[in-house]
Design a protein around this nucleic acid. Structure first.
Length: 490
RNA sequence: GGCCCGUUCGUCUAGCGGUUAGGACACCGCCCUCUCAAGGCGGAGAUCACGGGUUCGAAUCCCGUACGGGCUACCA
């Protein structure tokens, strides 16, 4: 019998969903989908100091934006809830009781100061570090008395003395062996009664019947501890898969220093969710070594833990941008318009309503910009000249194209030619302007550059004829005349 | 310090005993061209971290070393 695959992504709401967490979530999600299993979202909010509801909201929003839907978790009821650790106190209490009954835990009365002293001694001396077991030797009667006397204590795991080696079966790393000696009697429950991470995680993973734990590399060293807790609880140990870290361009752990690291920041900076998902999926996993563009569907159908790479990966924004450009170019005009309207509105080029009323016009504009932008944020600046009457002419562009020899004549000729165009379409406009260079005895480039600067205000723009066609003829002519005036005055 | 993990073009990776070490981003050149892009074609770029083994044969297996990283909390 094969049991149902159940995986979980367990972010801590002490911050936003960042790139590393997002990738972990993607892998868990894809793995669950591929296996026809269940993807659980659990909020590990056991740090009351730093956890906030805003962060939780933010995380949920980022997950949804990326298209990572969960089967159980916040706002999605399931049979294994609640899905906030803060609401699971009863489970931890119950687990602690069972550990007390089986003798796998003991109370420790050592103070912070004593522990600090022990640690300092251990560092300078020989001992292997970790808790020295003072309270483990106390004897249950004495312990009982001190608890009854109201002395506060933590509960530590009594690591079996004869455990030998702990073998962690990791799909990514292979079998990793830890000497049980290297695991000390760590704290399960704090003196205030709250569980520590290594305890809560295991209690929940066991209670939620998690079959595969896919998480960051930084937890690999915690795994032997957790294996011991699973064993003490007499629970099945899940299959593990530890993912390498994502690093910044300098090879150091990714942080704010490296710029945007939260999923939300990428959204704000014009990255599409499908591109981020694609990029992250391939940062540490590969379909075949050839494929670079992969859809969420393909990912769900092909993701395999076995193809996760072991080495840490450096986050390369340039490649992400390239990928984002690919997705922008792949969109149909209708799709692109749908997606770019909010960005245009935000840039002040209209409201969603006024822009919505110009759908057909926007759909003609879309293909003109789609192949020259990498991020959604670049669209508005590239098409601003198509909105409004006048255009602001870039001084450098004016110097280069308008102050050039013959510019006034070019602009006058262009004005006349366009004035006579019968069909105001890209084709009609091109037909009218094509013959201009020859008629003026000039090379094509300076002629079209002068017109471009006059109409778009810039030396760089979408194709001239198509752009003109999207402008009102009167607006275009007015701009040409204004530029001619400007050119003459130079 | 102890215990773990990692190391193939600048970057992401393919490779799982025999390959001219493949692909993608970035870079360079050419073509296309009204600018910028996009696209097409081509190029440069990896003594597979280093040193020992095993083997007829090693990027691939084993052992060291170096470098990088993680854990070693009443953080997660």
């Amino acid at each position: 019998m094969t049991q149902q695959v159940r995986v979980r992504f367990a972010p801590s709401p002490t911050g936003l969903l960042h790139i590393g967490g997002a990738r972990t979530a993607i892998y868990n999600w894809a793995f669950a989908r591929r296996a026809g299993g269940v993807f659980v979202l659990r909020i590990d909010d056991t740090d009351p100091e730093r956890s906030t509801p805003e962060n939780t909201e933010q995380i949920l929003r980022s997950m949804r934006w990326l298209g990572l839907d969960w089967d159980e978790g916040p706002e999605v009821d399931g049979a294994y809830g609640p899905y906030f650790q803060m609401k699971r106190a009863a489970h931890y209490a119950e687990a602690l009781e069972s550990l007390k009954a089986s003798g796998h835990t003991y109370p420790c009365f050592c103070t912070q100061e004593e522990l600090e002293a022990k640690r300092a001694a251990a560092r300078s001396g020989e001992s292997s570090g970790g808790y020295d077991g003072t309270c483990r030797r106390l004897g249950s009667d004495v312990a009982r008395e001190r608890i009854d006397a109201g002395e506060s204590c933590v509960w530590r795991l009594a690591v079996p003395q004869d455990r030998g080696e702990i073998v962690v079966d990791d799909v990514v790393r292979g079998e990793t062996v830890f000497p049980a000696m290297s695991v000390d009697d760590f704290v399960l429950v704090r003196s205030d009664g709250t569980p520590t991470y290594n305890f809560a995680t295991v209690v929940d993973d066991a209670a939620m019947a998690i079959t595969h734990v896919i998480r960051g590399d930084d937890h690999l060293s915690n795994t032997p501890k957790q294996v011991l807790v699973f064993e003490a609880l007499d629970a099945a140990v899940p299959q593990f898969a530890h993912l390498s870290m994502i690093l910044g361009p300098d090879g150091k752990k990714l942080s704010k220093r490296h710029g945007a690291t939260s999923v939300e920041a990428f959204h704000d900076e014009g990255i599409l969710p499908e591109a981020l998902l694609n990029y992250l999926a391939l940062l540490g996993w590969s379909l075949d070594g050839e494929t670079t563009i992969i859809s969420a569907e393909t990912l769900q159908e092909n993701f395999a833990l076995e193809r996760i790479s072991k080495n840490p990966a450096i986050f390369d924004v340039e490649k992400l941008e390239w990928m984002n450009g690919v997705y922008i170019r792949e969109m149909s005009p209708e799709q692109l318009v749908e997606r770019m309207v909010p960005w245009l509105a935000e840039a002040g080029l209209g409201t969603r309503e006024t822009l919505g009323a110009r759908r057909a016009w926007l759909e003609e504009l879309a293909p003109l910009v789609s192949e020259r932008v990498k991020r959604m944020t670049e669209i508005a600046p590239a098409v601003t000249f198509l909105f409004g009457d006048a255009v602001e002419i870039d001084p450098v562009a004016a110097d280069k194209a308008l102050a050039a020899e013959g510019a006034p004549g070019v602009l006058e000729a262009a004005t006349a030619a366009l004035d006579g165009v019968t069909a105001w379409t890209a084709e009609g406009i091109e037909a009218a302007l094509r013959s201009l260079p020859e008629a003026l005895g000039m090379k094509p480039k300076p002629v079209f550059q002068a017109v471009r600067v006059a109409v778009t205000g810039s030396l760089v723009s979408p194709p001239l004829f198509e752009s003109l066609a999207l402008l009102d003829r009167t607006v275009a002519l007015r701009r040409l005349r204004a530029a001619a005036e400007l050119a003459r005055s130079r």
